[in-house]
Design a protein around this nucleic acid. Structure first.
Length: 592
RNA sequence: GCGCCCGUAGCUCAGCAGGAUAGAGCACCAGAUUCCUAAUCUGGGGGCCAUGGGUUCGAAUCCCGUCGGGCGCACCA
């Protein structure tokens, strides 16, 4: 009996997975046809795909090459398909190559090819699915960046989870990733924070206080006030604001960031880098960016146009330093400084992105949809800053995460930090757990709005799809343990005993690497979540075959060779589930 | 008025850079537990893919219009 899988496992030092491998098999076949003069040289291969057909009865792999290339090759799809089929049939792992429909070529691979993939999973283990696609390029992913004025609330949750999963996904796909958080500690809102903390400071000194309208009333500031009393006594009780504002602001921001870091930690999120807007401004980097852009005539002093679609009674045109974002497709040029001389948010943000771009090959920002209006100007700024002296602009994407509508029993929850009415992230995580929160946020694409009914999620957390996937993993672990207890160890010795139903599981698991790459390219981590659900579903189905057909169980006591092969299969499916869950930051528990 | 996002089963959502007969979960109906623990499985009903055009071998997917929903349109952050 041939043992192709073993040979392949031995010779594929590079550990090429089957899907990636066959994309190159098709490519090679086309090259051969071109070399033989059968096809014109230089056909555009960009649109050629190699993927499993939706309907598995069509075969293991399918390519559209004949349909896509027929026109440029000056022939018809089926004729081209016939040529390609003849070439592909030379590949030893191809059992059959058939032309179907308008010109699809469906490939059926030998069972040993799939057994080889199973062995590859075992060999690669935690690295099965890892890709070199990113080529080590440095990608900066900035996400969360919530204002340091209070604890994280559920409005921040989606961007936090999506950003974190995306960062991990890009890293897994071969990028060097920097996870960054931009701390907005320079605007008016942190002065409001400082004044709010001063009230709590007075309170801690025994005064009875009433938080005025416009300050943050949340009691999470109480301990900050108490800490300031412990450190400074009543020094700032009667002092004018100018004496304490900066000190209180600094202490308050630090306290808020500690709180935010703790909140993020409950979701398993840890940033590599926290960049302070205040420090950025103090370092002179904003001025430097302005000078740079001025020297390329991308910033000029001009009159700010009145906002469109809005009538402001007190609108007066003023001259401000403006960035020429219209040159890059924005609706109007944007001010980088206010009339009082302070930087606008945009002015500082522009310099911040310049700084990021100098330390990375590509930038990704995760923003809430409520900031969609500012995407054009910041993209314009990055394009200007990174290509003002020619060359192509640094790749920069803004990924918008749509709003999460928070509900409680179907009723919208109005969240306001100023009113102190918001659902905190840690409340929800405490209630339903990190895994449920992460998985819930990752089982939909980010650019559609979603409802998050707090009560419903708490109540239905046991029905959450995350448990479905985790249960599959736990089932696998339990069976491996049971097998070990009975003296059976997984082994690749007799994978030939695995038949069609078992190999169907392998075929699905084998799609993990290409799913990782596709998800990374599209910046869509949710694809991993759906893949895992599909894989878990296939596993559960297979597992239940054993209910009526004991010979289909993983452990078949009288057949140790079969049991060893089945347990090997189970172990590898578990490995893929584990790899996927790890990517999503969800625990792959061994028992539930 | 302008910009961005969305519209797929009763509900919540997938649909893999245009592919073959549009899928899953929940809910509903009917079944499977002396079993490798059923947090599971099997089967069933349920769709003008909002709508009208266009592009092509082929459109839920790309382009334009319309309708509907969301977000935004400060020198705020």
């Amino acid at each position: 009996m041939r043992r192709d899988w073993a040979n392949r496992a031995a010779m594929t030092d590079a550990r090429i997975n089957l899907h990636a491998d066959f994309a190159s098999v098709i490519d090679t076949a086309l090259t051969a046809l071109e070399a033989a003069g059968t096809l014109p040289a230089g056909l555009p291969r960009g649109a050629v795909t190699c993927e499993p057909p939706r309907d598995p009865s069509h075969g293991d792999l399918s390519t559209n090459a004949a349909m896509v290339l027929a026109k440029p090759a000056g022939t018809n799809p089926r004729a081209l398909a016939a040529l390609l089929v003849a070439e592909l049939e030379k590949e030893p792992r191809v059992v059959s190559a058939e032309i179907a429909g308008p010109g699809f070529i469906n490939l059926r691979l030998t069972d040993d090819a799939w057994r080889g993939e199973l062995a590859l999973i075992a060999q690669s283990a935690a690295d099965y699915g890892r890709s070199q696609m990113g080529g080590g390029r440095v990608v900066n992913v900035e996400y969360v960046s919530a204002n340091p004025t209070g604890p994280m609330h559920m409005g921040h949750c989606r961007g936090a989870v999506v950003g974190d999963a995306l960062a991990d996904l890009l890293a897994y796909a071969g990028h060097k990733v920097i996870k960054e958080y931009y701390v907005n500690d320079a605007g008016a809102q942190v002065d409001v924070l400082a004044r709010s903390v001063h009230m709590r400071y007075l309170e801690a000194l025994g005064q009875s206080i009433e938080i005025p309208e416009g300050l943050y009333p949340g009691d999470y500031l109480v301990p900050v006030g108490q800490a300031l009393v412990e450190e400074f006594g009543d020094t700032y009780k009667e002092a004018p604001e100018s004496d304490w504002l900066i000190l209180f602001r600094t202490r308050a921001v630090a306290a808020m960031m500690d709180m935010i870091r703790a909140d993020l930690a409950t979701l398993g999120i840890r940033h590599d880098l926290f960049s302070s807007e205040a420090e950025l401004q103090a370092s002179g980097k904003v001025d430097a960016a302005e000078q740079y852009l001025r020297s390329h005539d991308l910033i000029y002093d001009g009159l700010l146009e009145a906002p469109k679609g809005k009538t402001l009674d007190d609108w007066e045109p003023v001259e401000l330093p403006l960035f020429r974002s219209t040159k890059f497709g924005d609706d109007q040029d944007r001010p980088i400084k206010k009339s009082n001389g302070a930087w606008t948010y945009f002015g500082a943000d522009l310099a911040y992105h310049f700084q990021k771009s100098q330390n990375a090959d590509a930038l990704v920002d995760i923003w809430g949809a409520d900031h969609a209006g500012t995407v054009k100007r910041i993209k314009a700024a990055v394009a200007a800053l990174t290509s003002a002296e020619g060359g192509t602009a640094k790749p920069f994407e803004v990924k918008l995460v749509q709003m999460v509508q928070l509900l409680r029993d179907g009723q919208p929850v109005k969240m306001s930090k100023r009113a102190g009415t918001f659902v905190t992230l840690s409340d929800v995580v405490d209630e339903v757990g990190k895994d449920v929160v992460r998985f819930t946020m990752l089982t939909r694409k980010p650019d559609a709005q979603m409802d998050f009914d707090f009560a419903k999620v708490v109540e239905a957390s046991k029905d959450n799809p995350v448990f479905y996937v985790q249960y599959a993993h736990a089932r696998i672990c339990r069976n491996l343990k049971k097998g070990a207890d009975e003296g059976f160890m997984p082994s690749a010795e007799n994978l030939g005993l695995l038949g069609e139903e078992e190999l169907a599981l392998v075929k699905l698991a084998a799609q993990f690497p290409r799913t990782v790459e596709a998800a990374a390219v599209a910046r869509e981590p949710h694809r991993i979540a759906f893949f895992l659900h599909d894989l878990a579903s296939a596993f559960h189905s297979y597992y239940n075959l054993g209910n009526d057909r004991p010979e289909k169980r993983f452990i078949v006591a009288h057949d140790s060779a079969l049991t060893a092969a089945r347990l090997f299969l189970a172990a590898q499916i578990g490995q893929v589930v584990r790899n996927g869950l790890a990517l999503l930051g969800v625990v792959a528990a061994e028992e539930l």
